[in-house]
Structures are given as C-alpha cells and as structure tokens.
C-alpha cells in the first residue's frame, strides 16, 4: 500500500497562499490513488517556482535547466519504459523557453505527463510577463502592458492532436487530483495545464478571478470530439472550462522502438556476434 507519508512532507520555499501548495497536494493524492510507489516515479523539472515542486516530493527527480525538462524526460523514458515519468514546471519554462520541445513532445506522443503550473506571470524572477499573460498586463518590465497575444496551450495541444489535454485549477484541488490521475494513467503524451494564482506578482488573475470564471465540464461533454474540444479550448474570459478537454488513442512513441520494452537500456548487454556482422559489412 502506498500512503501519502511515502511522498514525504517538506517545508517549501513558496509564498503562503501560492497555488503551488494545492497542486503539490493534488499530485500526492493522485500518486497515492494510482498506487504508484515513489521509486517507480521520475519527476523531471526545469527552473522556476513550479519547478521546485519535485524537491518537495519523495521520488526520483531530475531538476534540469530552464525550458529543457521535456527532452530530458524523453531520453529518460526511452531508456527505461518502466518509469512513470512526470514533467512538472511553470508556464514560462514550458511554453516560453521550452516552446519547441512542447511542440515536439506532442508530435512524438511519448508516454509521459506534463504538468504545467500556469499563473500567467514569472514568479522566480519577480513578476515579468509570461507567455500566457494577457494583453495589457502591466509589470515592472512591461510598464505599458503586454503587447503580445497570450499562448493558449490547450488550444495548441488539441490543434496538434495531442493524446490527452486537460485543464485544472489549483482552487479545485480534488478535481485537479482526478485530472492528474487520469493523465498519468493515459498511455502517451498527456498535458494538464493548471491555472493558479500568484499572490505576489499577479494582482489581476487572482484566486477570486479564477474561481469566479472556472467551471467544470458537464458529464455529457465528449472529449473524443476534436472539433468540439477545439471550441471548448478557445473559451476564455467570463467562463473558463476545466476538465479533460480532449483525448485520443494514438500509439505511444516508445512503440516504434521494438526493443525498449524489454527492460532498461542499462541492462541490455552488447550483442557481440551482431556487432561482428555490422563491422563485417564495411569490408
């Protein structure tokens, strides 16, 4: 039996009231519900306040560079498919610095879960605009407000036929935990974009702001209907839908490598007779 205690209880460096606390809690509950023991799970993160989350979990962790968690996770997964790989980082890290990797990971459909803490602002560097900040959002570094349009991750993911696309809100922790569970259980790439307040640097998109707008998709919503999903994903403003927006059954990327499921790469010995044959072909 896996218990919450297995994932530890750490003192965090986050601000009181930060959405990260609830996301961490939702994650722990999801892992325990899935009966995943800490040694089966690998968290890969980048740099940012969100990227610290794996340090507050008792599990395998690779805390790499800003923006680069997806390729690290891709390499790790391809060389040990037994691992449950979860990439966890923020909107700046994943959608900004790591944008190209986000697109490529969706295209590949590698079996991992991408958890993005999306507070529409940079927290670690103290309050600059993020790729998801809305136009007009004023910061110390954007004193005239943001000029660019925001990146809508769920819309892009659905447009690219991602395997599993969900949006959660840190304020609806139980619902969020369910989304994380479903995402981790999904075979192939899964995205959970999580809206969360930043109490220090985002005075516009506050807990109240999100709480007023976020609503949970009704039970008769069909996440396999891509056209409907696309419309839902573009909804933003007075109403922001939460839930599994879209899913499909694309084969996982690992399936293209016939040998990777035969155990971790580290344990596969060199086949010397085959090497001899290969070398012979250069005669």
């Amino acid at each position: 039996m896996v218990s919450l205690a297995d994932y530890g209880d750490y003192v965090t460096a986050w601000c009181p009231g930060c959405g990260n606390h609830a996301i961490l809690k939702a994650m722990k509950h999801a892992l325990v519900s899935l009966e995943l023991a800490p040694q089966q799970v690998l968290f890969v993160s980048g740099i940012g306040q969100a990227a610290k989350a794996p340090h507050y979990l008792n599990a395998n962790v690779f805390n790499g560079l800003h923006g680069r968690s997806l390729p690290v996770a891709t390499g790790a997964k391809l060389c040990n498919t037994d691992l449950k790989v979860i990439v966890e980082s923020g909107d700046g890290c994943v959608y900004g610095e790591g944008g190209n990797h986000f697109l490529a990971a969706i295209r590949r459909n590698i079996d991992l879960t991408l958890i993005v803490h999306n507070n529409q602002v940079y927290g670690l560097t103290k309050g600059q605009a993020s790729p998801t900040s809305e136009p007009g959002f004023v910061t110390k570094n954007q004193p005239d407000g943001v000029f660019s349009l925001p990146f809508n991750p769920v819309e892009v993911a659905i447009a690219m036929n991602a395997g599993f696309v969900a949006r959660g809100f840190s304020g609806k922790t139980e619902h969020l935990s369910g989304l994380i569970q479903a995402a981790v259980a999904h075979t192939g790439f899964s995205l959970v974009d999580i809206l969360q307040p930043c109490v220090s640097f985002n005075k516009v998109n506050t807990f109240g702001w999100y709480n007023q707008r976020c609503y949970i998709l009704s039970e008769d919503y069909d996440p396999t209907d891509r056209q409907a999903a696309f419309l839902k994903a573009s909804e933003w403003g007075d109403g922001i839908p939460l839930g599994i927006l879209y899913k499909n059954k694309r084969p996982a990327y690992e399936d293209h490598f016939p040998f990777v499921r035969r155990g971790p790469a580290a344990t596969r010995a060199l086949n010397v007779p085959r090497l001899a044959k290969v070398l012979d072909s250069y005669r």
């Binding site: 890969v44 060389c79 344990t267």
Partner: peptide, 15 residues
Amino acid sequence: IAAINMAVGASFSGA
C-alpha cells in the same frame, strides 16, 4: 538543445 538534453536524460536513466 533537445538532442543533448535527451542524451543527458537517457544517461540519467542508465544508458
């Protein structure tokens, strides 16, 4: 950038 980060991830996994 992805190429070398993948290699680092793979190596972390033991490959």
